[in-house]
Design a protein around this nucleic acid. Structure first.
Length: 562
RNA sequence: GCGCCUGUAGCUCAGGUGGAUAGAGCAACUGCCUUCUAAGCAGUGGGUCGGGGGUUCGAGUCCCUCCAGGCGUGCCA
């Protein structure tokens, strides 16, 4: 929470502790309680602006009914020097506090004063964090899972930046291992078929039209000159030709999606710089491996896994997890990030256990590697699940989605649910330009405020800074609710960062927009007496700035007119 | 079999570290524009919080158990 909000709560907490001491001295409590208690903003505003459960938390310690304790505390409390004017015992034993006008006035002044820095904090200062996300397989086009992962990873990185972490965004290009072999093989077959060779794709090869296209493009450039080559050489040439094109396409699509990476990290670099061999050596040295059936096994059962697993196959090639171990070694040791965060599909959860086990065995990255597992996306159209593209009949790609749905809607709506929850994505809703669409709902609130300012400017009226006394005129329930919501922003962003859930921020936007619409409907600005009009203009400016900042953070357009 | 995730209104979902009468939006119905954008607001109806136990001043939230759905459990990635 913001320093102001925190200070306000701290003052009252101390007043409660002092009251407990006095009540004990006066014999109204059996002893001075020492247990922990909490302060919270009640859901129902009739229960005050701030509430404490102290009396209830002390029930056991004091061995008396909480209501009795609360009444004693309320009698002895001294609120001098706090924002609260009044305290009462309520319900089962709550202590409810009611703020004076100055609290609300100070919040508004604080928001305006901090400007686009409002809501940010320094929790993560000095900590370098690497967020790796999407990392789509470069053997083909991106799919739906990459769409959610992209919006999630990019916005999570932004949220972490907002609480002070030094963040880098990274895309890991899997340009090594078995899948590249398969990629080369598939291209090779298509290339040969192009020139009339009667060869069939094996069962587990890539069948996509994109592969055929790449093979034909290759043929257009090099003709049949590679037919006579050694198979290995031909496949290497095909991969060298097609892979950069795929990566470029991925790059281009993500750019359209407004995602900018700091690094494109290639798996192949880990073989070149020796880190793959290095982690195998380290694992052997650690004494946690053994040989069996010609393969090298890792003693995973000693690190909490169900069974041991192979890290180097009998054919001498490492399994997929080895470059990944080297990659995380590179993140946490070589590059020295304090923390690494990987965004993965939930189907990788078994993998996360195995990777953690290995890193623990190597004694690196303990507690420094976190996974965000996201559940599946179900695309819905007309109330029914869609998996295929309407246009091509093939499975839906990220590019199809970018063609059909506004980027604003994609980025916003993929960040409306907790990553761990499966999600229905309503395509009809995403393209709808109406109040039902949460993106428009938020943008509309912003546009309304901008328009209000524009209208007043026509009459020669501009916002000026207000005195505390003027801001204290904001006393309508709708104004108070709005200010309370503004006061909660810093805490909300911090919470989003703590639990890796940017959806908290988009939901906050929706809530703020809704609260503004309610305010706007009840409280007029234009035509009110000058001091009140100015105070309300200040409040409107707060809401406008906060909405704009949050949407811009998530790279969503914030139009001034709609 | 074992592990992880999910189960809250007809639908899509909120409900930090346990707190007061479980909340929004959509859909349905009823109102509100001669004054700042009606892409908005207000109101009405709608619930065995998957079931059952337990912990305590107090459980949608924590523990146990069962049910239903998704995913994982390769010398695939």
């Amino acid at each position: 929470m913001s320093q102001l909000v925190q200070r306000a709560q701290e003052q009252i907490r101390q007043a409660i502790e002092a009251a407990a001491q006095r009540a004990a001295q006066a014999g109204e409590l059996p002893q001075t309680p020492t247990g922990a208690f909490s302060m919270e903003v009640p859901a129902d505003r009739r229960n005050g602006d701030l509430s404490s459960n102290a009396a209830m938390a002390w029930t056991r310690e004091l061995r008396q009914p909480p209501r009795k304790t609360a009444e004693a505390l309320a009698r002895h409390i001294d609120l001098t020097g706090t924002y609260s004017l009044r305290c009462e015992a309520a319900g089962a034993g709550f202590l409810n506090f009611y703020y004076g006008d100055s609290y609300y006035a100070d919040i508004v002044a604080d928001v305006l004063d901090k400007g686009d820095q409002y809501g940010r904090s320094t929790i993560g200062a000095g900590q370098r964090v690497l967020v790796e996300f999407v990392s789509a397989n470069p053997t083909g086009p991106m799919h739906m899972g990459n769409a959610r992962g992209g919006a999630l990873g990019d916005c999570l990185a932004t949220v972490l930046e907002a609480v002070g972490y030094e963040v880098e965004r990274e895309f890991y290009v899997n340009d090594g291992g078995n899948q590249i072999e398969k990629f080369g093989l598939s291209l090779d077959i298509r290339y040969r078929q192009h020139f009339g060779d009667v060869v069939e794709l094996p069962e587990d090869a890539y069948y996509g039209a994109d592969i055929t296209q790449r093979a034909q493009d290759f043929a257009a450039v090099y003709g049949d000159s590679y037919l006579s080559c050694d198979e290995k050489e031909r496949r290497a040439a095909l991969v060298a030709f097609a892979l950069p094109k795929n990566v470029e396409e991925i790059h281009r699509n993500l750019e359209r999606y407004r995602i900018e990476y700091d690094n494109w990290f290639y798996e192949s670099s880990l073989y070149k710089n020796g880190e793959v061999d290095r982690v195998i050596a380290l694992l052997k040295e650690s004494g946690n491996t053994y040989e069996q059936d010609g393969a090298l096994w890792f003693k995973a059962t000693q690190f909490g896994c169900d069974k041991d697993f192979v890290i180097v196959r009998a054919n001498g090639f490492p399994t997929y997890i080895v470059p990944d171990i080297a990659y995380h070694y590179n993140k946490l040791v070589t590059r020295g990030f304090h923390r690494a965060i990987d965004i993965l599909g939930a189907d990788h959860h078994g993998y996360t256990l195995r990777l953690h086990a290995v890193l623990n065995a190597l004694k690196i990255g303990e507690g420094r590697l976190d996974f965000v597992l996201m559940q599946m996306v179900n695309l819905m159209r007309g109330g029914e699940a869609v998996r295929m593209s309407k246009r091509t009949g093939k499975s839906l790609t990220l590019e199809d989605l970018l063609d059909e749905i506004p980027i604003d809607a994609l980025r916003f709506m993929f960040n409306m649910r907790d990553p761990g929850a499966p999600m229905d994505f309503d395509l009809d809703l995403a393209i709808e330009k109406s109040s039902q669409n949460p993106v428009y709902y938020c943008q509309y609130a912003h546009a309304r405020i901008c328009s209000l300012f524009a209208r007043l400017a026509e009459d020669g009226i501009a916002r000026r800074s207000c005195s505390s006394e003027e801001l204290a005129l904001l006393r309508a329930p709708e104004e108070r609710e709005l200010i309370t919501l503004l006061a909660a922003l810093t805490g909300e962003i911090a919470e989003a960062a703590r639990c890796y859930d940017p959806a908290r921020v988009t939901r906050y936007c929706t809530e703020l927009a809704g609260q503004f619409h309610r305010f706007y409907n009840v409280c007029r600005v234009k035509g009110e007496a000058e001091p009140l009009m100015q105070a309300r203009l200040s409040l409107c400016a707060c809401v406008r700035d906060v909405l704009r900042n949050l949407m811009q953070m998530f790279k969503i357009d914030v139009p001034e007119k709609m």
